[in-house]
């Protein structure tokens, strides 16, 4: 029996600006957490607001036993969370869900929309950058947001990155999927097929650990893969671009949750399996990371 309910001690809970907070928790979750998993956190102790809130694990420090979360103040629950002080404890269910595949070789492209950056930070941290070439593409509203959030996260990691802002105040004016299209076009010009076939086989890759959704698919650990998180519309566009380019993709989905452990069927998405069947999956337990090629983005189709 794995016990997944913990009380974690708050080490830090601090504003980064732009309504984004950094929350560091010390406890048992760090020992087993993997990139792409999340925690289901109780923000208060009263019946209102009632439900737990899901937050991606953005950083895992096993030696210190700490995880880092970043949250945007979005409503009542997150507003209440800002008032939690260091040394207080929070009730946490986690780590929950199926995370990203951590490649052990080849190239990894991270595509993030806004706060969709957070789960990708954990993946970035987990991947061995001496063996895997990593690049990050990140889109957001404006320079203020990108600097407030990026200063202590992405921009510090030393990873090769490009940004896009909706108002054009930083990086490419427009959406992050423009950047993705550009990268994919360059890839295909330089022979993506060749790169994907360059023989970093599943054996080498499995050393990277993790049970991500691409792990059990032939070709899933090919040399060039994309991992994405962000608003649904953005993810749908990323999936379309990757499909056209024939690039394997993992996406981290968001859905309203109640239990967070797979019991209530509150958080489902629709998936088309390899044999063409339409099936329900629970975002909390079967995800939140899914094979981008399988997700059915529009149920009315």
């Amino acid at each position: 029996m794995i016990i997944v309910l913990h009380r974690e001690i708050v080490i830090e809970n601090r504003s980064l600006g732009s309504d984004i907070y950094r929350l560091v928790l010390k406890g048992a979750v760090a020992a087993t957490a993997r990139p792409g998993q999340f925690v289901h956190l109780q923000v208060g102790t009263t019946a209102d607001p009632l439900l737990r809130r899901p937050f991606s694990i953005a950083g895992i420090d096993r030696p210190k036993g700490e995880i880092t979360l970043y949250y945007r103040v979005a409503g009542r629950g997150t507003a209440q969370l800002t008032r939690v002080r260091p040394a207080e404890t929070l009730s946490v269910i986690g780590p929950v869900g199926r995370g990203f595949t951590v490649p052990a070789a080849g190239e990894l492209l991270l595509v993030a929309g806004g706060i969709g950056l957070f789960p990708l930070l954990a993946l970035l941290e987990a991947v061995d950058r001496s063996a895997v070439k990593v690049k990050a593409l990140w889109g957001g509203a404006n320079r203020q947001f990108m600097e407030d959030v990026g200063r202590e996260t992405l921009f510090q990691t030393g990873v090769d990155y490009a940004v896009a802002t909706m108002d054009g105040s930083m990086g490419h004016p427009g959406v992050v999927t423009d950047l993705l299209k550009k990268v994919l076009a360059e890839k295909s010009a330089h022979g993506l097929a060749e790169a994907t076939a360059c023989g970093q086989g599943a054996d080498a890759a499995s050393a990277g650990g993790g049970s991500g959704v691409l792990a059990d698919r032939p070709g899933g650990r090919t040399a060039f893969t994309v991992a994405a998180c962000g608003p649904r519309g953005m993810l749908q566009a990323v999936a379309e671009s990757c499909r056209q380019a024939g690039v394997p993709l993992e996406v981290s989905l968001e859905e309203r949750m109640a239990c967070g452990v797979g019991a209530c069927l509150g958080c489902v998405c629709l998936v088309r399996t390899a044999d063409g069947m339409l099936v329900r999956r629970r975002v909390c337990k079967d995800g939140p990371v899914f094979d981008g090629r399988e997700v059915v983005w529009d149920e009315t189709d």
Binding site: R256, L265, G266
Partner: peptide, 23 residues
Amino acid sequence: RRGNPPPRVVETPAGMLNAVGLE
């Protein structure tokens, strides 16, 4: 049964609504 399309749950004052649709 595949049940209803999401969102299927929403929080309410000291409660929640669900529309799983008997999946």
